[in-house]
Each structure stands twice: as structure tokens, then as C-alpha cells.
Amino acid sequence: MAKQSSVPEDEIDTGRRHALKCMTWAGTGLVWSLAGGVPLTAGLLGRDAQAAPVNPALTFVQISDSHVGFDKPANPDALATLREAVAGVRSLPTRPAFVIHTGDISHLSRDEQFDAADQALKELGVPVFFVPGEHDVLDDGMGAAYLARYGKGPNGKALGAGWYSFDHGGVHFVALVNVVNLKGGGLGNLGQDQLAWLADDLRALSASTPVVVFAHIPLWTVYPEWGWGTDDGARALGLLARFGSVTVMNGHIHQILQKVEGNVAFHTARSTAFPQPSPGSAPSPGPVKLPADKLRGALGVTTVTYRAKAGPLAVVDATLG
């Protein structure tokens, strides 16, 4: 993994306060930040509102739900909007250390869709770490194609359906898979093996280690009527309860939702392909067709900046247009 100037782990492990600090590129993005655990809405920012962060320890970007291959009226060319998102990331004032993709890379798990997505993401010029969405495990092997392509994880250690962890800049990152072995009538599913692995993975960490957990389907229950939640997500969150700073980043619902509970900040990202309705606001969670000139205002990526010492820990969403 690429090394990036970052805060030494011992500095973080002394338990100094971490915080979240904002930066953005956006045309019409609704920007929010966390200060002392309370989300603040900062309103609409123009593209020129971006400001170079002051000596950030670690900046990374979340891309989600690129659905390459989607060509329905809500967005006839999902590859084009993914490319725009990539170009937006490349224009960030701070080059991210890496990008996480929180799943639904492809629309139908077809080789040519994964190939096209990979080609577009290669332009980022930084490592990309993946978790699968339910659209990425539709091959006959029910995820074999995903694993063949992404199953090594960032350090050759992805397990099971593709879960793994890694450390960067004093932050512990955990990539979870909650889109396989789904049961009729149920929600997202982590499963016993993965939960046992997670317990093991976290065991040696000091409670002051900032933890970022990412998975496709929200780990908390957003709207079960539309399947927006994870049946055993609470068990994963239970294992994270002793940590002082936990950020949970998900996709799947193609819109920003966020909440803070204790030391845990939950955040879902926009899609780069098409928006979905807010919970319960439509007959179904199907794609929302917007006027062509409004689509890019509903698509986007998320930037996270971690800093040790004083100052906020920033999670910022920016739109494509």
C-alpha cells in the first residue's frame, strides 16, 4: 500500500483527541461536518469554496454504487458519471492516500462491466480497496467472479466472501461483506464466520485507535421495509463499542444519511450512477429519474480527512455537478 505522510501510530495511541475536519469539491453539495460528534450542516458550497486542508494526517475518498453497465432512463451512461467522479477526485486539492469503493461496482457482475469500472478507477492513480455490493455477486459462482478479481484485498489477506482489514496513518480500517448468503425475508448479512473474524481482528487494538468500518449495505437499520439494514449489524457494532472513535461508511441506498450514536458516526454515500428515493417517500426504492440537468447534483463521492490532536474529523460529501 502506498505510504503517505501520516501521524505516527504512537501519537494516536496516546489517546489524544481526534476530530473530523471538512474539505470539499462541489457544485451544489450539501456539506456537513462533525465537530465534537455532532453533525453540522454547512449548506451549499460552490466549487471554488474548496480550501486546502491544513496539514491533514490522512485523507481518503469513498466512491460507491458505480453500477457500471446501468443504462436505464435514470442514467443512460453510468460509466460516464463514474469517470466524472474519478476526475473530481483527481482535482481534489489533497491527493487522497487511497479510495474505498463500497460496492455495486458493476450492475450485473459481468466481466466487461468490472473491466470498464477497473479501467475508469485506474485513472485515480491511488490504490482502491473494495467491498462487494449485491450487484457484484450475481455471477453463476455467486461471488466467485468478484473474488477472482478483488479477493486478495489490499494485503493478500482477504478472507471468506472478501472481508479484510488494514492500518493506515494510525487508523484501523475494516472492510466487511454483508451481501452474501442472504435469507428470504431478511436484510444484509455478515454471518457467524465474519463476526468471529472481526472479534479477533479488533482484539489487540487499543480503544483509542480510530476505526473506520466500511460495507455495502448500511450496518444499522435505515429502513427495513426496503431492506436497508443488516440483520446482524448490531453484533458488529457491539464489538466496536469500546472504541473511542468509530466511523461506519456504507453505500447501497444512493443518498446521504448520517447519524451519530455515542462514539459511532454512521454515514452513507451517494452513488455515482443514479439516486434512489428517501426512505418511504416512493412506492419502491427503484432509481429516481431526474431531469438531465439535475442528475449530477444527486451523484457524488465522499472525502474523509483524519487528523490527530485537536480539530474535527471530516466526512464531506460532494456532488458531480
Partner: peptide
Amino acid sequence: IDYFCSLHPHMT
């Protein structure tokens, strides 16, 4: 026969 959508298992 009970069945569901394997992408969206809340659909039964």
C-alpha cells in the same frame, strides 16, 4: 414454495 429475491431478500 416460499421464495425471495436474492438481491433484495425483503422481497418474498
